[in-house]
């Protein structure tokens, strides 16, 4: 049966569709709003169903029609990914854009070595992504079309003193996306890696130290991500000045990097 919330797609009312995984707060919520404003119909995926409901209701009220639908889901429930994806495909009829934005960061003290914290980060930031990117990749591969966006981080560009697992999860995600890009470009699929700098969201608010610079809002981040999507970029730093800074940071020799406190 059709989803009563969505108007039927017709030649005179075609649908561009997107999935945002990790849509309930921060960057993901802002991106969901932005995509809806750009005319997409968005499947908003995350665990906190109440937040998703509120977000979608707000978006749909603003546009006077259904443009965002909540799909509560935990990315670490890997087995339920294909069914969730299939449910969304059935509701939308096709898929143009897939954004993996779910991510957590547990802060670890410099003398703290905690497997559970590390595992949680790797599971959400990396394995959850892999659980989604396999079926989505298979779909886009078969369809010979589609756009995959992964929200990685500048944090993946270097292994820093304070965040081994978070850095590793983002570095791995970046590399995973690169492989996927090399696989899928020849099938007409675009893969975009986004590396945000500091964005004013719950993740940063929970951080013990507050020495942020070039801090942007979630809305600004969403704007930057949208620009990269529209330009079908391969990799984009958000805001762009991080590109230059990370170029330098990536070239700091290890004997110096080991002595730095960030």
């Amino acid at each position: 049966m059709p989803d009563p919330r969505l108007p039927a797609a017709t030649p005179l009312r075609p649908r561009r569709t997107a999935i945002v995984v990790g849509a309930s707060s921060g960057i993901g919520a802002a991106l969901t709003r932005k995509l809806a404003a750009e005319g997409y119909t968005v499947a908003a995926v995350a665990r906190r169903a109440d937040l998703l409901e509120t977000l979608c209701a707000e978006i749909n009220a603003a546009h006077g029609e259904a443009r965002a639908l909540p799909f509560p889901h935990d990315v670490t429930d890997y087995d339920s990914v294909p069914a969730t994806l299939q449910k969304i495909l059935r509701t939308f009829g096709h898929l143009d854009l897939f954004v993996y934005n779910a991510g957590i960061q547990h802060h670890v003290r410099l003398d703290e070595f905690d497997f559970e914290k590390d595992r949680a980060m790797l599971e959400t930031n990396l394995l959850g992504a892999v659980a989604w990117l396999n079926p989505v990749g298979a779909m886009f591969h078969a369809l010979k079309a589609g756009h995959i966006v992964g929200i990685s981080s500048v944090a993946g560009d270097r292994g820093r003193i304070g965040a081994p697992a978070y850095n590793a999860s983002k570095a791995a995600l970046t590399t995973y996306l690169e492989s996927l890009r090399n696989r899928l470009t020849r099938r007409g699929v675009t893969v975009t890696t986004i590396k945000p700098g500091f964005v004013d969201t719950d993740i940063l608010r929970a951080a013990p130290k507050k020495n942020f610079f070039w801090l942007i809002t979630s809305e600004q981040a969403a704007e930057g991500i949208w620009k990269a999507i529209r330009a079908r970029k391969q990799t984009a730093y958000v805001p762009p000045q991080w590109g230059l800074l990370m170029l330098i940071i990536r070239h700091i020799p290890s004997f110096i990097f080991r002595r730095l406190s960030f």
């Binding site: 797609a9 030649p11 075609p14 087995d79 294909p82 069914a83 096709h94 591969h141 078969a142 369809l143």
Partner: peptide, 25 residues
Amino acid sequence: MSLSSLPYQRLTYLENFGHSLRAAS
């Protein structure tokens, strides 16, 4: 329900005669 057995390789975009609508099936 586990749908990992879904035949993704069969997914194809099909169109109406007027090329004004498409759907993945």
